[in-house]
């Protein structure tokens, strides 16, 4: 594992911890898209089916279990927690996300590394992850004001993607025969979706002002 990959995993973990902290500390999930969180739960469950078939490392297994458990916990809180669920911005979180699921699955049927159940589901999870942030970005844009923890959550989620790209570049340069067409292409698309958000995040950081996204 190289330093970029580790930084990517750690910022990913940090983003999830920040989100859990926000929900736990403020007993509120305002500004958080439940649809994005449900998409991430689907992403992790379908990608980590290999938990049952392959063992890679303790680190790998631990992280997979943490990602699945934390995404399910967040979805559970937003749906069923008696206090938290009341702050859910239902009327702002109206992105038609079944379209994303369908399109990702259709693409996985066309473009995969091998035509097997596990490989098609793996490709599906990669494509879905690339677009899973869209409901969250749309919600933030609609609500205008973004609270600090939610802003940092999205920032670290974007940083995780950027580090993964550096990781692939590093591996491409140092490992013979290294190619990641599916993950690499999807990763670039996914990171590009954050470009706009990053721009406004840095502006607010530079001006030391509250993060606001233009409508």
């Amino acid at each position: 594992m190289n330093v970029f990959r580790l930084a990517g995993d750690m910022t990913h973990l940090l983003s999830i911890l920040l989100l859990l902290l926000k929900i736990y500390a403020t007993k509120s999930c305002s500004g958080v898209s439940r649809k994005t969180q449900e998409l991430y739960a689907i992403v992790f469950i379908f990608r980590y089916l290999d938990l049952f078939t392959d063992f890679i490392s303790v680190y790998n297994t631990f992280m997979k279990v943490v990602f699945i458990a934390s995404s399910l916990a967040i979805v559970w809180c937003m749906r069923f927690h008696p206090v938290v669920r009341r702050s859910y911005d239902r009327e702002l979180d109206t992105f038609r996300y079944f379209f994303l699921v369908g399109a990702s699955f259709a693409l996985a049927l066309i473009w995969h590394e091998k035509f097997s159940v596990q490989e098609v589901f793996w490709a599906f999870s990669i494509y879905l992850e690339a677009v899973a942030i869209l409901p969250q970005l749309v919600l933030l844009q609609r609500s205008g004001n973004v609270d600090n923890l939610t802003g940092q959550y999205v920032f670290f989620l974007g940083a995780y993607r950027a580090f993964y790209i550096l990781n692939w570049i590093y591996r491409y340069l140092t490992e013979p025969r290294f190619t990641r067409w599916i993950a690499g292409t999807s990763g670039v698309v996914q990171t590009a979706l954050y470009a706009d958000f990053f721009y406004y995040y840095f502006i607010s950081w530079k001006n030391n002002s509250k993060l606001k996204l233009p409508a």
């Binding site: 392959d54 490392s57 490989e119 025969r177 990641r180």
Partner: peptide, 10 residues
Amino acid sequence: DDVDDTKDEL
């Protein structure tokens, strides 16, 4: 076959 080693990433 380098399909398998893809899955060491999360």
